[in-house]
Design a protein around this nucleic acid. Structure first.
Lengths: 205, 205
DNA sequence: ACATATATAGACCATTCGGTCGTTAAATCC
DNA sequence: GGATTTAACGACCGAATGGTCTATATATGT
């Protein structure tokens, strides 16, 4: 049997001179710091160094570009968690690493910048079906990973008495996302660190 | 001694035909469901049933009206907590009532609508000093009330071993605000209820 | 009744919004 | 090399933005 034709045929005309993924990342950073409605086309053009025409040809419109940016943000977050909660790692260490990441992202300038996912959930969820799907599936994915780590911790008898992995996972997801909200105006690292320690202390034996 | 002159002298010209506070409440509802940047002047005019001229004469501009709306939202929230955490009430009952309120506000359509404070924190904090002050002071006030209830519970020996009121209060504030984020796309009452129960169970003896 | 002061309504304004289009440039295929 | 295809750019577009202003109505204080 012959080899399959490549999924993407060779491009015919003049090739792109800019890196699409780099442009998405630049756009993501703008949406991240300003929010969806508050970022205007000129903001995106400046950040991506694209002309209007090129941006629309490459991405369709502002909304489609936003979705690309959001997808990238989500993919980054999931990839991070896959490292933190790797199955060959001690689950309690995984939890600690996961919390440490949130403390880091919640401190100082990072904290003040906030979280694109949380901001998007509050700004667009319920009014944009594409956004809804992404947000809901992300929270589900995060909860599943935390619950899995907690289950493994329980199997190793490292959970405090009476802690049930699935409900504890829901608590933790709400907690970390809430940190991102409070951290917008109170991003003191020492406090965040002490708070996550205190929470973990309620769950770990 | 003669009676003091009233602080607000009688108005001279034609009196208002609309209720300012009612207009603020209507505006609050619009900002609440749409967010700051996404609500346009016509939205506010329709909701308040005011003309452009009247609205600007009464409130200054969109931003000032928003601040009035936000202040009202905050005052409502604080008033609610003052009832829930009344000092003549059992503090654990107070905590339960507080959580019950969040479950209610987080369920179904209420949950999907979200929280004006959280949405504002994510959309405007760090870019609007007036908003910053309000958000930060609200979270501080909430944390203080929760911490006070927990302290009283501890004094009554109703806290689980090792629970420290101030850090537990920070955990709880993050948790409830995070619920408001997750509840935008997953506002299932039974889940919320079970989750707050599980959290309280970690703190109460 | 009259002078004064304010409210109301909506016409009006400059600016900015997201998005399109026509022209020119640069690559590939035959 | 000529035909074809796509990229790049920025002028251009109608609609919508937040905000002002003028004309008129309606109250008060004397």
């Amino acid at each position: 049997m012959r080899r399959q034709a490549p999924l993407e045929p060779l491009p015919r005309g003049r090739p792109r001179t800019f890196d699409t993924e780099a442009a998405v990342e630049r756009a993501m950073n703008v949406f991240w710091t300003r929010g969806y409605h508050a970022t205007a086309l000129p903001d995106l053009l400046r950040a991506t160094k694209l002309s209007r025409g090129s941006l629309y040809a490459a991405f369709g419109d502002k909304h489609a570009l936003f979705l690309r940016a959001l997808d990238r943000y989500i993919a980054d977050a999931l990839a991070r968690m896959d490292v933190e909660f790797a199955s060959d790692r001690d689950p309690v260490d995984g939890l600690r690493a996961y919390f440490a990441g949130y403390v880091e992202r919640n401190s100082g300038a990072n904290g003040r910048r906030g979280c694109l996912l949380v901001a998007t959930a509050m700004e667009l969820a319920g009014r944009d079906a594409e956004v809804d799907r992404r947000i809901a599936s992300f929270f589900k994915a995060m909860e599943a990973r935390v619950a899995d780590a907690l289950s493994r911790a329980k199997a190793a008898d490292k959970l405090a008495a009476g802690v049930e992995p699935s409900s504890a996972a829901r608590i933790i997801v709400c907690f970390v996302e809430g940190m991102r909200v409070v951290g917008k105006t109170a991003p003191a690292r020492i406090i965040s660190q002490a708070t996550v320690d205190a929470l973990l202390d309620r769950f770990i034996r």
